[in-house]
């Protein structure tokens, strides 16, 4: 985050001594933040209001629309992305918060030559979707679920994939796809 000047007021990172109340720094007002976000290995510079979520930054500013907006309230999992390799919800993450972290979206999952990730391939093979809207979130969640070691049984897959809702009800095929990919990735 860099310093910004807004209406004659300087917005700065917290001073090293942390003393906001004594003298130099006034109560800051809302302003634009200049962020550098690392997404799928590339650095993107963008100016955003502090309230902008990672989800809106990805979709509306960087045109990475593979990450879906479902409920926008942390309940459906359609916006699942990885931050430093762990699955999180982009709708409840502020863009400013993940500066300096490594972000992976569904667009960054396949190899550069287009070879699909084992989980993507398994979703195709098992027909693990109907309308497809929840699928990017399901796949990002499944990749992490397997990596965490929480895909050891169908019961465990169901528990640890519970944060991804599918209104079409493709759950049995989703479990089959995660089971298949987990087996392939282990071997």
């Amino acid at each position: 985050m860099t310093s910004q000047t807004h209406a004659g007021q300087t917005i700065i990172d917290p001073p090293e001594d942390g003393h906001f109340r004594n003298g130099s720094t006034n109560q800051p007002s809302p302003t634009t933040l200049s962020l550098h976000l690392t997404i799928n290995g590339e650095t993107h510079a963008l100016d955003v209001e502090p309230r902008v979520t990672l989800l809106d930054a990805l979709r509306e500013r960087l045109h990475l629309t593979g990450t879906k907006k479902g409920c926008d309230q942390g309940q459906c999992g359609a916006c699942t992305v990885h931050v430093d390799g762990e699955r999180v919800l982009a709708c409840l993450t502020l863009a400013a918060q993940v500066e300096g972290r490594s972000i992976t979206t569904i667009e960054g999952l396949a190899d550069e030559d287009g070879t699909l990730h084992a989980v993507q391939a398994a979703f195709l093979e098992q027909d693990a979707f109907q309308c497809g809207y929840c699928t990017p979130g399901q796949i990002m969640s499944a990749v992490a679920c397997i990596r965490e070691g929480h895909a050891g049984s169908d019961e465990e897959i169901r528990e640890y994939m519970a944060g991804n809702l599918c209104r079409c009800g493709a759950y049995p095929h989703i479990v089959a796809a995660v089971r298949q990919a987990a087996r392939e990735l282990r071997s």
Partner: peptide, 8 residues
């Protein structure tokens, strides 16, 4: 909207 500060 709000202002944003990062504490280290």
């Amino acid at each position: 909207d709000f202002s944003y500060l990062r504490a280290d």
